[in-house]
Design a protein around this nucleic acid. Structure first.
Lengths: 239, 239
DNA sequence: CGCAGTGTTGAAGCATATCAACTTGGGTGG
DNA sequence: CCACCCAAGTTGATATGCTTCAACACTGCG
């Protein structure tokens, strides 16, 4: 059930059977959310962390004029609010973009892991650090890339992350976001998202229909987006 | 010597004398860098982490056309590349914006801490998580705020962070960045930074002369920037 | 069948970039 | 000690990417 979390962790380091057993044992409760519901809400002090087993979710903040900025996207195998365990207080909300199936892990169990399993603790830490690395990549894209390259970069990133947890089929993957949601990710207007996507389509870099994206020319897309997957730390080594 | 790190950590949780002693003992080597030098360079695999004792530093990435995006700013008391300890490989560079005085902490000593002091480990983890929270705040500012509000927000953030490590004097603080460097932080052009700053000055929100910023009206600046310091997690509680 | 959410299109306006020139001040060599 | 220089800051003109507004088309669903 937590296979996608294991795939995730195992893309960075070897996970022993004992550790896997410990991870499995920490999942005692599951929950399902409908699209649009908050998995975690801003200002809350959850007593547990939320492991996304299946679905897409987004961290977001609202600004005063009512607009929204999505600060990260989460997929199967992501520990969406692991950071709230040391942080205690959620400074942003997390919303389900599709129906989501999650597992809840109590802080007391996480704390137990940090007291007894330094290696797993470092892997959890690593997981949140990769979140940070993704944030930095997004900042670079927002600040110094064209909106077109920014969208292309996001698509490269999602393809690779989904591939790790076996959610791609060939060059295609399920992409359930609406254009309005994508606008909240990139930080531009809905109209401009639409026109930018069309421009990517016109250059035969990708197709996007029926909530499915197909990358038509990976090399050109990657080069155009200046995508370098180093920041995702997909190498198995002692951590 | 590591007093600013202690001030930093103590703004989040109580640090015992034994823990302080352990922290002091981990610093065995110091180093000084001139402004413009890289403290850590992209693609390196440092065997130690760098604790900034004094000075300003910036994490950055370069894009193909030669432009630069700064992804975070660091001040005294910041563990600038603590994240490279689990991450291993630096995916970005860190440059000294002023002359910098740093302490080097070996990974072997950090690893020892993760094996023997779960509480300090969580505090280190917390430190990197706050980095992440700052990144998210920057993403929101980049995506959904005016450039003017973005700059105002950055100034609020720096004021609060510098205050924690006792680097403010009244409503003033030393701000050594050039307008070109600030442009690389905000992700806009140098000319526009200049015009935006002037607009903030005209509204009597702040002054900026001689590398010193003085906040003239904290409440109005904070409100204009939509600054809420919750994300900096400045509350002392068990972590 | 009709409605609501989503996607698409065109026109007009504004924020920000780019280019180019000029000012100011501190540091340095003759 | 002055003359010069270079980095930093400032300003105005022009260009463009992106937003906003408004309308219309498509599709799945109650």
């Amino acid at each position: 059930m937590i296979e996608s979390l294991l795939l995730n962790l195992e893309s960075h380091d070897v996970v022993s059977e004992a550790e896997k057993a410990l991870l499995r044992s920490m999942v005692k409760q599951e929950k399902r959310f409908a699209a649009g519901e908050d998995l975690v809400s801003e200002g809350s002090r959850p007593g547990h962390s939320t492991l996304l087993l299946d679905g897409f979710a987004a961290r977001y903040k609202l600004v005063d004029d009512g607009r929204r900025q999505i600060t990260s996207l989460h997929i199967s195998g992501d520990f969406v609010d692991l950071h709230a365990f040391p942080l205690k207080l959620m400074d942003h909300g997390i919303v389900a973009l599709t129906p989501c199936h999650v597992a809840l892990v109590k802080y007391s169990d996480l704390k137990h892991i940090t007291e007894t399993s330094p290696h797993l603790t470092r892997l959890f830490w690593l997981d949140t650090l990769i979140d940070g690395a993704i944030h930095r990549e997004w900042i670079v894209a927002m600040g110094r890339k064209s909106k077109k390259a920014h969208i292309a970069h996001l698509i490269c990133e999602l393809y690779v992350r989904l591939h790790v947890v076996r959610r791609t089929k060939g060059q295609s993957f399920d992409f359930p976001l609406t254009q309005a949601e994508l606008a909240d990710v990139i930080g531009i207007s809905l109209v401009h998202v639409n026109k930018t996507i069309q421009s990517l389509r016109k250059e035969n870099l990708l197709t996007w229909t029926n909530h499915t994206i197909t990358i038509l020319d990976w090399d050109r897309l990657m080069e155009f987006a200046e995508f370098d997957l180093m920041y995702l730390n997909l190498s198995v080594e002692p951590r």
